[in-house]
Amino acid sequence: MEIILKEDIIGLGYKNDIVNVKNGYGRNYLIPTGKGVIASPSAKKQLAEDLRQQAAKIAAKKAEAEKRAAQLEGVELVIAAKVSATGVTYGSVNAATVAEELAKKGIEVDRKIITMRDIKKVGTFEATIHFFKEVETKLPVTVVAENQPEPKAEEVAEAPATEEVATEEAAAE
């Protein structure tokens, strides 16, 4: 069944897209909730006319989305979470957690436009933020243990020092 979407639905499409969905999904969810209409020939003509008239507005929205995406350029989140001895987090880091951390940095992002898998262990992961139809940003998310903030930096600083001491001891013998 072809449906014209009336709003953005993450995982399906964006507003004014024509998508193919299963009959039950379209008939029982999208159409009754007002999130889509049947893509009849007359509805397609109306959509084409609306898009032609709204081209300037759409371009302005896209430019704004690109500005917001540029704000996130080079931003990397480090989230401290309670971790068990095996490196597994208690609970998970999800889109809502990422949105909260971005808000702390002064960047307001709705959690609904962030897609990622729930993070359940320590490491570096990636979240995708969908600002507009063709404007997406990949955001690196690093989860560290709460009681040991950024152990990698300390290990890197200590490792060369121990090598130098070992080299000096070998030279002394």
Rank of each mutant, 00 (worst) to 15 (best):
I129K: 02
T124Y: 04
I58N: 03
E49G: 07
A65G: 09
K67H: 10
E154M: 00
V122I: 15
P41R: 03
T89W: 04
A69V: 02
K61T: 00
V143I: 14
V135C: 09
L72W: 04
I31W: 04
R111I: 04
F131T: 00
V21E: 02
T97H: 07
P41L: 05
I107W: 01
K138T: 10
K138A: 14
A157P: 01
R68T: 02
G123A: 10
Y29E: 13
K138R: 13
I58Y: 05
A95I: 02
A95D: 13
G34M: 06
P32H: 10
E101D: 10
K133T: 08
T137Q: 14
V144W: 03
A103E: 14
Q46T: 12
L102C: 08
V156M: 08
K45R: 11
K112G: 11
T97D: 15
K35G: 05
D110L: 06
N28C: 07
L51R: 12
G106C: 08
T128Q: 06
E76R: 13
E101V: 09
R27V: 15
E136G: 00
T86E: 13
A96Q: 14
T97Y: 00
I18Q: 13
V122D: 06
A145H: 09
A99Y: 02
E101S: 14
E136T: 07
E64I: 09
H130M: 06
K62Q: 15
K45M: 08
E134K: 10
Q46S: 14
K22H: 07
T97F: 00
T128K: 09
A103V: 00
R52P: 02
G74Q: 06
T33P: 03
K45G: 05
P151W: 00
S92T: 12
A56D: 12
V135N: 08
E164L: 14
I31E: 01
E101Y: 02
A65S: 09
V37A: 10
L51Q: 14
I114C: 04
I119E: 01
A59L: 12
G106Q: 11
A153V: 07
E76I: 09
E146C: 05
K105P: 04
T89R: 04
E158L: 12
A80M: 12
I18Y: 10
P41I: 05
A56C: 01
T162R: 15
L77C: 03
A80T: 08
G36D: 00
I107T: 05
N147C: 01
M116L: 09
